[in-house]
């Protein structure tokens, strides 16, 4: 009869005293892993996908170039543009830009500068190869085509 009568006399409360600790732990995790982007990207960035990705090992040697259709097409037109830092540049300005970037590095490391090319999938080879020719002239020959991961088919 009394099988179902009694409820267990246990407190039904989740202890909350450790909650701040847990939250702080998460907070520190995100604080450490967060990277503030130093420039806002003004071009479309739908990166291509590839299977044979390799990591960039030394972050300090890496500099970024963004190529793609400008996000504000009404202002800059539809043709893909080259962005470095916060500005659009033309291929002829690349040598100068590479030299300023190289000057930021230690003298012995200057030849190891790595250019990470973040190029939108819809960009055409024409503009990219112009950039590459200038990079060769600027003697910044190690490049990395940024790509997303794709499973091997």
């Amino acid at each position: 009869m009394s099988k179902f009568k009694k409820k267990a006399n246990v407190k039904q409360e989740i202890p909350t005293s450790s909650m701040p600790d847990v939250v702080f732990m998460l907070l520190f995790f995100f604080m450490v892993t967060t990277q503030m982007r130093d420039s806002s990207i003004m071009v479309k960035q739908k990166l291509p996908q590839a299977t044979q990705l390799r990591k960039l090992t030394r972050k300090s040697l890496v500099t970024y170039i963004y190529i793609g259709e400008p996000s504000k097409t009404d202002q800059f037109g539809k043709e893909p543009k080259i962005q470095v830092n916060d500005v659009f540049i033309e291929p002829k300005d690349i040598i100068q830009w590479v030299n300023t970037e190289k000057a930021k590095l230690d003298e012995i490391e200057r030849d190891q500068i790595t250019i990470s090319m973040k190029i939108d999938s819809d960009s055409k080879r024409g503009i990219i190869s112009d950039v590459e020719t200038e990079l060769r002239r600027a003697n910044a020959r190690i490049i990395n085509y940024s790509a997303g991961y794709k499973k091997e088919i």
Binding site: T34, Q35, L53, I142, N144
Partner: peptide, 25 residues
Amino acid sequence: LLTFFLVTTTVANDKGLTLLLPPPP
């Protein structure tokens, strides 16, 4: 604070195909 960092975090995607360009023309 946690929410702020959650929102601003971008997972750095620094992977790609490496290539060594030839010397200048």
